[in-house]
Design a protein around this nucleic acid. Sequence first.
DNA 1: CGATAATCGAGACGGTACGTCGAGTCTTTAG
DNA 2: CTAAAGACTCGACGTACCGTCTCGATTATCG
Lengths: 215, 215, 215, 215
Amino acid sequence: MNAATSGSSSHEAEGSAIATAEVATSPGRGRPRDATRDAALRNAALEVLAEVGYRALTMDAVAAHARAGKATIYRRWESKLELVIDTCTQLVQRNIPEPDHGSIERDLGEFLSAFATFLSGPIGKAAQALVGELPHEPELAAAFRESFLLPQRDMLRRLIDRGIERGEIRDAAPVDTVVELAGAALIHRLMLTGEPLDQRFVDRLLYDALLPLLR
Amino acid sequence: MNAATSGSSSHEAEGSAIATAEVATSPGRGRPRDATRDAALRNAALEVLAEVGYRALTMDAVAAHARAGKATIYRRWESKLELVIDTCTQLVQRNIPEPDHGSIERDLGEFLSAFATFLSGPIGKAAQALVGELPHEPELAAAFRESFLLPQRDMLRRLIDRGIERGEIRDAAPVDTVVELAGAALIHRLMLTGEPLDQRFVDRLLYDALLPLLR
Amino acid sequence: MNAATSGSSSHEAEGSAIATAEVATSPGRGRPRDATRDAALRNAALEVLAEVGYRALTMDAVAAHARAGKATIYRRWESKLELVIDTCTQLVQRNIPEPDHGSIERDLGEFLSAFATFLSGPIGKAAQALVGELPHEPELAAAFRESFLLPQRDMLRRLIDRGIERGEIRDAAPVDTVVELAGAALIHRLMLTGEPLDQRFVDRLLYDALLPLLR
Amino acid sequence: MNAATSGSSSHEAEGSAIATAEVATSPGRGRPRDATRDAALRNAALEVLAEVGYRALTMDAVAAHARAGKATIYRRWESKLELVIDTCTQLVQRNIPEPDHGSIERDLGEFLSAFATFLSGPIGKAAQALVGELPHEPELAAAFRESFLLPQRDMLRRLIDRGIERGEIRDAAPVDTVVELAGAALIHRLMLTGEPLDQRFVDRLLYDALLPLLR
DNA sequence: CGATAATCGAGACGGTACGTCGAGTCTTTAG
DNA sequence: CTAAAGACTCGACGTACCGTCTCGATTATCG
């Protein structure tokens, strides 16, 4: 679906349900795709998305923002949906550094703060905009989970695993459930209640629920 | 905004940001509204919503489904959004009976099961469809929270309060956090991961996280 | 193709290859077509046509000129071509009064002058714009000939027939050829050479060619 | 505008409004233009023109037909219009041999037949396609008249002039009018009525109108 | 009872965005 | 410098949907 993406990150292409190959006739003839347009378009999409939301985002607006023709967009993405999800997943990669300070309390607190900050930005808004489409767009759902939910969940699990190795976690701790609850609590606040993802909330979540369940 | 709704439930009209008054000119002149059309339209809206989702839901489709004219819809709701939220909130009322068996374990378990079942139905799908619109539609957000989030949260809190009165809950239990986590876990599964809201999940949530945090 | 046309002039619908029935669900339900929009659109089309020519005429421009939506145009005509030909044929009707002064010289002269004036206006420009499409649009060709060429040819023939009855025309006069040459000369000037269709030209055509061939 | 054309026919370049100089930088550096591409492109243009008409003719189609890139076309002609007119005017040259048999009747008849045959071919179709553009493209109009109308008119006039010298033409004959009518009659049939340019028509034109007016 | 007024289904209305396609330009690799 | 290939910007195409308005036909209350 996106030649630029699949071309630039070969090791991820297999894992992603979105960045299917089907294109990237790069060694062929003709003028190659202008890589700067990819970035410009994704950037424009993110700007428009942050300004007006998913539904009010129009392809014309994105094109105008990037001083591009609509055809240049449709050459890369088949629909508004794909443009948006690719734009987001692209930005999700490596935005939250994995903490490792030898303490589950500190690692977990740092991760939650970082993730909360991350979610409070444009990506969070974009993700929210996509939720309503998930049930009717299986490919989007797969990509969304793979690049939005899984990395965060896996990082969280690694944090806890290191705590287990250090003996900080009690034996019967419901690790899976804690991992699920951590993400759920943040996202629920962000998307449903609309309350702020501030440090108070993070602390309460950490010290009232997650840590007590773990140790 | 909705004559039918505000007319039939006068005590809720004040509390709701949606069901504003302006209406129910029933004893006026002219042909009175056909009450059967209200139900038919809401029904049609729900069908279409379940079939194609919020974005692909068109007013023409709803009208056609209900064999009604579009004006008949717009006479009752000001927009597609209002139609959908009213349709949903209407159905939310009194769909989950409040359990009271003298045991926090049993009450909580029953509530979670009932809520999970409820969410797995069309209302859950509809709610998911609305999430993406919340940030850009303050009225919708208010109505959504009031009729979707609050009732469930309040019921949950009452359950726990009764447990406190019975001495089942320990003193320092993080009640607010538990209430928030319960809802968050269910909704996160429903809308984000797409995994089933089955009894196994409910049990795990209950016995691994909620109850341990409470007692 | 055009409900308004075929509905309003039933006796012409059969003769015309363009104004096919297929629509005119007039006695049906729903809001009837606004007849004033027909005129406004045709008027706008003619204005735009005169300004920029056929190729540069865009449906958006016509719609904007008439303060109408594009759908309102496409509801009446299936394409730009149909809009233009219907606009023109509509205006051709009864634009040249048939002279009858009891003299072939005077009748013919008056007719040629009137036709020359008529062709020099917007209809002439529009007709020229359509010529290039005729070979690839059989329906257009039929309509064009029927409403543009035939009326003029028939009127010319009636003029001459009256002259024959009055004994002004010699027996062996090549009436068909004269009729053909009269139209051809005017149209050739208009569309091919671009020279003006002035009185000098009309007189020369009349006294140097047409009358000598007839009497 | 067209290097190839102006290079190959230097004596006509001055007279033509189209074949401007700028030209055949042949002794320059780099790879020389492939002369076979000129013919291939003109040929492709003519084919496409005959198939689908001027409006539906696309540069991509011409390029594909000639297995050429679009740049190869635009290097030679500045626009679609120029390509078409150059293609046509190129083919007009020397397609009608000038008859000279010492008899106005025979010369005129032969010329009319040859011209009718010529018009019935692809050039006639192409010419028709251009008519609608003439009012809005002055350069095209000039080129069209110069290479399409004038040569035929001049040849016709020379024919008649020779007849005058031979004493075949009466003194007061309206030569200009006859010349104009001859061309107009053929073109009118070709482009407007669509009737065939057959020998019957040519004979009728010749013996019923042109010759009687001349002698 | 008749007049008045609001309802109903149906669908036309002005707008706006869609996704496609064509014109003419630019940029690559290959010669 | 030219060739083929094809990406680029721009803008028109014809379609679909939104929310409004207008039609003929009901269906109630009011005078």
